[in-house]
Design a protein around this nucleic acid. Structure first.
Lengths: 148, 148
DNA sequence: TTGTATATGCGAATGAGTTGCAACAAGTCA
DNA sequence: TGACTTGTTGCAACTCATTCGCATATACAA
């Protein structure tokens, strides 16, 4: 049954990430909040510069050095993932619960996420045959749109 | 039937690569020969610095700038492939006829090559479903040895 | 509110890779 | 074989992403 009373909204993505930081003893500063908000709102794969630009719109005091430093912290804590696609610097996204791979549009730079359980399984099989266990992997398809 | 007469040895890997350059109107200099020899002999995935070191043992006049320039030329011509594994700069290998992917030993940095037709097929299927055609791809398994 | 360990902004440093330029040398043609 | 033309080289200066040192600022526990 639904209450008539005002309900506290569910924690936003950014708030969840802040909580994860606090739980770890990491301080949540103005600058980090701004970056977390930007990361939470992003549905693309921005680089550090672009994140800096966006974060400055939230809090103009955020410096690029802090963006880099914070991204490293967030990566170490598993909150964001760092990708090194071909050509250019690192690009970032919030770490999803479920893993996915990337298809990069060579003409536009767009990134599409996908996941294939079959490929995951095959990867593990191949590694096992060679006497290895997969820690993590990287699968990137560099593609062009099929024109019809 | 085997002849008793001396036979001209089959062209070495390096000579094949030189021929490929000449065919294209690219000059084969002392420095390029040295680098080609080094590349032909390498069965690992060295970075530019290491290639420079090895090339200097063949011809001490080879500069790092030339190593970089030549690697770019060779890559453009499809003679070598450039890889950007996690952490650190680009690493190179002679371009094989048959494509392969890489398993990187996280503890030693060793690189093992493998190939799976099944995975290749799945990749194409996935891209096609999204309306794309795979230009090239990158599959890297970052692994640790299974200890028994 | 205070104390203190952490974070921050700034600018300088780093490191891989690139580039301008004058000297050099492949490959060509006589 | 020798001279010519044009691509190639070494060097040092440069770029660009990322990191770091340091003095100042601030989150947050008490």
């Amino acid at each position: 049954m639904t209450s008539r009373m005002p309900i506290a909204p569910p924690p936003s993505r950014a708030e969840e990430m802040e909580a994860a930081l606090r739980a770890d003893g990491t301080r949540v500063t103005r600058q980090r909040s701004a970056l977390l908000q930007v990361l939470a709102e992003a549905d693309d794969h921005p680089d550090a510069n672009e994140l800096h630009r966006r974060a400055q719109e939230v809090d103009s005091s955020v410096s690029l050095a802090t963006v880099y430093r914070t991204l490293s912290v967030l990566e170490r804590q598993g909150v964001v993932q760092r990708h090194a696609f071909e050509g250019g610097g690192a690009r970032f996204e919030t770490a999803d619960v479920e893993h996915h791979d990337h298809l990069i549009d060579l003409d536009t730079g767009d990134v599409i996420e996908f996941h294939s359980e079959k490929i995951e399984r095959l990867q593990k099989e191949i590694a096992a045959e060679l006497g290895y266990e997969v820690e993590h992997h990287r699968l990137e398809l560099y593609c062009r749109k099929i024109k019809r």
